[in-house]
C-alpha cells in the first residue's frame, strides 16, 4: 500500500518533469518537434522493454476497433500544446488549467456515456474548479 502510494505520487511528479523537459526542448525547436521526440523516444524505450519481457501483442489484436488507434494522435496534440503553453503561462497555471479541463470534461464525458456520477459532488467540484480558473486570469 505504501509502495503503491509512493508510485502514484512519483507518477504525478514524472508528469510534470516530463512536461518541463518537453517544454525545454520546444524552446530550442518547436512544440511539434518536441512532441515527435517525446513519442519516438518513448516508443523505443517501450519496444526494448517489451522485447525483454515478451508478450506485448495481444492475441485478440485483430478485434481492436479502429478508433482505439487514435489515442496516439491525441497524444501528439497534447504534448505539443503543453510544450507551447508551459513557457507562456508557467508550470502552476499549465498544471491547474489542464487538470481543470480534464476533470470537467471527464465528468461531462462520463455522464454522456451513462456512467454513474454523484451529482452533488461533481457539481461542487466543478464550481470550485471554475472559481479557481477565474483566479488564474487576473494579476495578483
Amino acid at each position: 500500500m505504501i509502495t503503491s502510494a509512493v508510485f502514484a505520487l512519483v507518477a504525478g511528479l514524472l508528469v510534470i518533469l516530463s512536461r518541463q523537459v518537453n517544454g525545454r526542448l520546444s524552446l530550442s525547436s518547436t512544440p511539434l518537434i518536441s512532441s515527435f521526440w517525446n513519442h519516438c523516444v518513448g516508443f523505443v524505450v517501450l519496444s526494448a522493454l517489451a522485447l525483454a519481457i515478451g508478450g506485448l501483442l495481444p492475441s485478440n489484436a485483430g478485434e481492436i476497433p479502429w478508433w482505439v488507434f487514435t489515442g496516439g494522435a491525441l497524444g501528439v496534440v497534447f504534448v505539443a500544446s503543453s510544450s507551447w503553453l508551459l513557457p507562456r503561462i508557467g508550470a502552476v497555471n499549465s498544471t491547474l488549467l489542464v487538470i481543470a479541463g480534464q476533470m470537467v470534461c471527464g465528468v461531462v464525458f462520463d455522464m454522456l456515456r451513462g456512467e454513474p456520477v454523484t451529482l452533488w459532488a461533481a457539481g461542487l467540484g466543478i464550481v470550485m474548479i471554475l472559481a479557481g480558473m477565474a483566479l488564474t486570469q487576473r494579476r495578483g
Binding site: 497534447f78 497555471n93 488549467l97 476533470m103
Partner: peptide, 8 residues
C-alpha cells in the same frame, strides 16, 4: 489549456 485537458 482547458481544451488540452479535455483532450487528455
Amino acid at each position: 489549456a482547458f481544451a488540452t485537458g479535455g483532450l487528455l
